[in-house]
Each structure stands twice: as C-alpha cells, then as structure tokens.
Amino acid sequence: MGTSVFYFVATLSVIFSLMVIFSKNPVHSVLYLIVTFFTFTVHYILLNAQFLAVVNFIVYMGAIMVLFLFVLMLLNLNKDNEPLKSTLVKVVGVIAGCCLVVTLVGTLKATAISDPVILRNPNLGLVKNLGKELFGPFMLPFELCSILLLSAMVGAILLTKKEKV
C-alpha cells in the first residue's frame, strides 16, 4: 500500500513539475510549482518525517512561493510584452540543457543502486528526536548553517539600501 501511494504521488510530482516548464503563463508556472511542493510534502509524510513535511509546507508553500507570486503579479508578464528571444539564446539554452542531462545521467549511472537505508530509529523525523539530533551530534554544522543564512539575510538587506553605508 505504501509503495503504490509513493508511485502515485511521485507520478503527480513529475507531471506537475513538467507543467511548470510547459505552461506559457509565468503565474500558472508558479501555481504548478506550488502544487509540486505540496506533493513533496506528501512524500515527507510518507517517510514519517512530519516536522520536515510541515516546515516544507510553511516555508516553501506558505512563504517563498507567496513572494514569487507577488513579484510575478507585480511584473504582470504576458505574451504581448514578453521580450523576443533570439535564436542564439535558444541554441545556447538547448546546449546547456543537454549538458545538464548528460551530467545527471552520468552521475546516476556511476552510483550503484543502493540498499534501502533502514533507520535505527524509525521515528527520527518527529520533532523531539530531530531536535535532539540537531542540537546534539550535529550542533556545529547546524549553527554554521544558521550563520550562513544570517549572513545571506544581512547581505540582502545591504543590497536594498541605496545610499552608501
């Protein structure tokens, strides 16, 4: 039952992420992306990682995508005023895409099909256990990540200030 649910949701993820690329209207693209993120949330729940699921839900669906949508609505892009792309740009795009595909296929071929990882503690994804892991053995990497995020935030604020600081 778990596997069939996984395949169903995985198919949905793939379909919706393809729709992100294929839809003409950027706002529709973002909306498909939101649905794709929702299917990711379902994946996390299937993996019994409730905390990650709900954080994915809040941060990606509830905050980041709202900002994406906000910017796209402000720009009001549609077919009439879309800048025409030259043939050169299209060719470059195709070549870059092909390179990415080759790299991805190569990496996937290089990795052997791994044995399914069996967690020592199946409830690792619950808040209490995850917190103990993060603030215990993984304290240093976790704090470093937060400092990285903080510096990115300070940088973004500095960039928006027009006058010399």
Binding site: Q50, F51, V54, M61, L69, L126, V127
Partner: peptide, 25 residues
C-alpha cells in the same frame, strides 16, 4: 492529534492568502 499540530495551524494560516491572491489576479 499530530505532534506538529501547532505548526500545522501555522501552515494553514500561511496558505490562506492564496485564495485572495489567485482570485485577485
């Protein structure tokens, strides 16, 4: 009774804006 109930509420609240945004656009 999920063990992230409070965050669930918070997530639902943050989704609430989509109805308004999509309708308005």
């Amino acid at each position: 009774d999920i063990n992230v109930g409070l965050l669930y509420i918070f997530g639902v609240v943050s989704l609430g804006v989509y109805g308004v945004m999509i309708g308005g656009w």
